[in-house]
Simulated scan of single mutants.
Amino acid sequence: MTDDQQILTADQVEAEGLVDWRILFHALHARYRTGDFATALRLVDAVGAAAEEMNHHPDLDLRYGQLHVRLFSHDVFGVTRRDIRLARRVSELAAGLGVRADPSAVQVLEVALDSADPEAIKPFWRAVLGLRDSPLHDELVDRRGVLPTLWFQRTDPHEEPRQRFHLDIRVPPEEAFARVEAALAAGGTLVSDERAPTFWVLADAEGNKACVTTWKGRNQSS
């Protein structure tokens, strides 16, 4: 393993003095307030060119007036010296465009599910949400960075929970049945398909529920 493949600790990252950036879980995050869309596009172009030059590529989330940049080394699933170098370069490019970072705006949502036996229910959630095993922790992750991480909190055995909330996953109609079938094959049960193809209600082996949903049977705006 080379120096560029060594995962840095949060303390090591903090010691680098990256003013624009904050480490959240396994990645560096920066939110740049561009003020308008054209400036954000110029920053995206500049970051893209730098990423190609350095052969290291960030995840970019472009919205009106802002650009969110997420950096981590996918091969080792953590922050390395490669990320530090590119983070400094991105900060320089943003400063050159007169764009300021807003560190107070960065945040990452992680969903925690209490379970006495995570290994028994993890395959269901991997299937129903289309996630992958994390290489580091007892959790499931979306390598595309679209869905939040699902982390399994170990707890004592308990009766079927009365959920105060559950997860709805919206997929294209042509993908819904395959997603339901994958969840059932992974140990899930069908609670109800009365409203299919609008939604199917599924449950994992401990009774935690989730819905696979589509736009069919709804108002066109929902």
Rank of each mutant, 00 (worst) to 15 (best):
116 A>R: 05
185 A>Q: 13
215 W>G: 15
24 L>N: 08
152 F>Q: 05
142 D>F: 04
106 V>H: 04
64 Y>M: 12
108 V>Y: 06
189 T>S: 07
61 D>M: 07
51 A>K: 04
201 V>K: 12
145 G>A: 00
95 A>W: 05
102 D>H: 06
168 D>K: 06
79 V>F: 03
113 L>W: 05
96 G>L: 05
38 A>C: 00
129 L>D: 00
50 A>N: 06
160 E>C: 04
149 T>A: 15
31 R>Y: 09
167 L>C: 08
165 F>V: 01
86 L>C: 06
213 T>D: 06
64 Y>S: 14
201 V>Q: 10
76 V>E: 00
82 R>D: 05
112 A>E: 13
211 C>I: 09
33 R>L: 07
172 P>V: 01
166 H>W: 06
112 A>H: 14
96 G>K: 05
43 L>H: 06
165 F>D: 00
167 L>I: 15
59 D>M: 14
220 Q>P: 09
125 W>G: 01
168 D>R: 08
74 H>F: 05
88 R>N: 03
201 V>A: 12
110 E>M: 11
123 P>T: 12
138 D>K: 11
60 L>F: 11
71 L>Q: 02
154 R>A: 08
215 W>P: 15
104 S>T: 12
48 G>H: 14
197 P>G: 11
193 D>S: 14
166 H>T: 03
25 F>S: 02
20 D>R: 05
200 W>L: 05
51 A>M: 13
20 D>S: 12
153 Q>M: 15
78 G>Y: 01
2 T>W: 13
45 D>T: 15
191 V>F: 01
202 L>H: 04
147 L>Q: 07
145 G>W: 02
10 A>T: 14
151 W>R: 14
201 V>H: 10
85 R>W: 04
148 P>G: 11
167 L>E: 06
101 A>M: 04
123 P>W: 04
201 V>F: 15
124 F>M: 08
154 R>Y: 01
109 L>G: 03
83 D>A: 08
113 L>T: 02
33 R>D: 02
162 R>T: 11
152 F>G: 02
5 Q>R: 14
173 P>K: 07
207 G>N: 06
178 A>N: 10
159 E>R: 07
95 A>F: 06
21 W>E: 03
131 L>M: 09
100 R>I: 09
137 H>K: 04
116 A>N: 12
81 R>E: 14
136 L>C: 10
222 S>H: 13
62 L>C: 08
44 V>N: 10
